[in-house]
Amino acid sequence: MSAEAAILPGRGGLFGGLSDTFWRRPKLFVFLLLLPAALWLGIVYLGSLFALLLQSFFHIDDFSGLVVHEFTLKTYAELFKPQNFDIIVRTASMAAMVTIASAIVAVPIAYVAARYAKRRWKALFYLAVMLPLWSSYLVKVYAWKLVLAKEGIITWVFEQLHISPALDAILAIPVIGGNSLSFSFIGTFLVFLYIWLPYMILPIQAAVERVPVNLIDASADLGAHPLATFRHVIFPLALPGIVAGSIFTFSLTLGDYIIPQIVGNGRLFIGQVVYTQQGTAGNIPLAAAFTVVPIVIMGLYLWGARRMGAFDAL
């Protein structure tokens, strides 16, 4: 009945031959699949990072203003000058505050979205997170410029409620206050919080969704108070999500230079220094050395996050 041969002849042609070869040598096939992306990221991205790192070991000649292509740690030493070190501390503390605040704001949203929202509400939550996430970054900053402006909506709301003095009092606080919200640290903080918040919500939601519902039910059946359930069951399981989210909020805040430029009191952040040093000031080595700071901080952060299993929640 089966008159055909048990082994069919090769199909010939380029495709037939290639297909047979890939089957015989699966490792070669995987290698070829990986090659384009690995080459791209390896050459374009890592190559550039390396070029940057290299630059940070050069320095600017004080008299001629030209880059001296010699190995030196002089540029790194400059980072520890008070005016530069201030910038690093300011940026890192802002990143830390934004991260903590966004975790606090994100947990209820992510938790409700993951646990309680059904159908329509689920879609609404999804859009409410995705829309700000994918909306143009500049448009979001711009929206906050509008909201925080002296003649803008927040001032108006305070006036309508007849509590303008409260706003003035907040703005009068030294360091974090300012002329108006859009020229204060509070403003910078709010915009950072707004813009990076979705990056915190999504991984937490993913992590909470991964907690089997019956685990929570089991805890409830054991008589745990909802709050205790949250603390002893949900929170530990959502923690990798929070850590994963914090990678984004922390890293993105560290490197941003546009938000403090548009909404802020003029005190510099790392990103702004990098931008001006490489641009107008022409001091690429110092800019490069400044860039190494977030890389080192993020390197440590990622290393720690990895050990907590945060990458599973990405």
């Binding site: 990072l49 490197g255 990622l302």
Partner: peptide, 11 residues
Amino acid sequence: ALPGIITGISL
């Protein structure tokens, strides 16, 4: 995972 500014200035 690294800030965009790093990618930018590296390039």
